[in-house]
């Protein structure tokens, strides 16, 4: 569980981002130890996706620093992957072509090796029967798996997950986190997961952080999170327990 001695793969210092008058991220600092799974929790609209996009360079932060172990943002694509909330699959390419694209465009592998690697990635996520399907022909869960295959095919060191469970049914959510854990073991990447699925996140992560009012309000192990008696953290913990039962009635 603990990964203290390794140098952090990513260190974020006082990240600030606002849109007009609206300050989304006031000052976010977070350190990602290599090889860990970190979940960033938070209610909807607390800027979790904005945070992730700042890390990936899709948004330009107003202040603060994002420092990767391998340097600044240049080369994000070679060493890191980003799993979009909406999957962002290339809708006019087949499943196989989707997975092969990052290899085709950023590596100098031969076409046969690319087809092999892409096929393997699909197979490992149980999608090899669907390699000639277009994303729109796949179910939500399969699209998510396809996006995961595409994110992992380049063997990244760091994967940023933006709401990987959004729009999935509870069993599928479990599967997504299971996959993250399993592939982390297999491919040895660091995962930063932004989610509001607290129970799954607590089960799967090494560390959790709570983003609230533009800051990291809490950071610690899942056990610490669950045991915390801070009222905001509590409200989160309570929510997961009470909401489903409330719906049952």
């Amino acid at each position: 569980m603990t990964v203290a001695p390794l140098p952090p793969i990513l260190k974020v210092t006082s990240l600030r981002k606002h849109f007009g008058e609206h300050v989304v991220l006031a000052s976010v600092s977070l350190t990602l130890p290599r090889g860990s799974i970190i979940s960033v929790l938070g209610r909807s609209g607390t800027g979790k996706s904005v945070f992730l996009k700042c890390l990936a360079g899709l948004l330009k932060p107003d202040a603060g620093e994002v420092r990767y172990e391998m340097g600044l943002l240049e080369g994000f694509g070679q060493r890191c992957s980003y799993l979009f909330q909406g999957n962002a699959l290339f809708d006019s390419l087949t499943a196989l072509e989707n997975v092969a694209l990052p290899l085709e465009q950023t590596t100098r592998l031969r076409p046969r090796d690319i087809a092999q690697a892409a096929g393997d990635a699909l197979k490992s996520l149980g999608l090899d029967e669907f390699k000639d399907y277009f994303p729109a022909q796949l179910s939500g869960g399969m699209q998510k798996r396809l996006a995961l295959a595409r994110a992992l095919v380049t063997r990244p060191e760091l994967v940023l997950f933006d709401e990987p469970t959004a729009g999935l049914d509870p069993p599928a959510r479990n599967t997504v986190f299971e996959m993250i854990v399993r592939y982390r073991q297999k491919f040895d990447f660091t995962a930063l997961v932004v989610t509001h699925d607290i129970s799954e996140a607590l089960a799967a992560s090494d560390r959790v952080a709570l983003l609230e009012e533009g800051r990291i309000y809490f950071e610690g192990t899942p056990a610490e999170f669950a045991a915390s008696d801070d009222c905001i953290v509590r409200s989160f913990n309570d929510n997961i327990v009470t909401l489903p039962t409330g719906l049952d009635k």
């Binding site: 080369g75 962002a88 694209l101 990052p102 465009q105």
Partner: peptide, 25 residues
């Protein structure tokens, strides 16, 4: 229209995060 939809469904962002220049592609 096609590029507009690429933009809308974050496909252009996806290219960027993969290290593929969306303009070049």
């Amino acid at each position: 229209a096609e590029i507009g939809i690429h933009r809308n469904s974050e496909q252009i962002d996806a290219l960027t995060t993969m290290g593929i220049d969306p303009l070049g592609y």
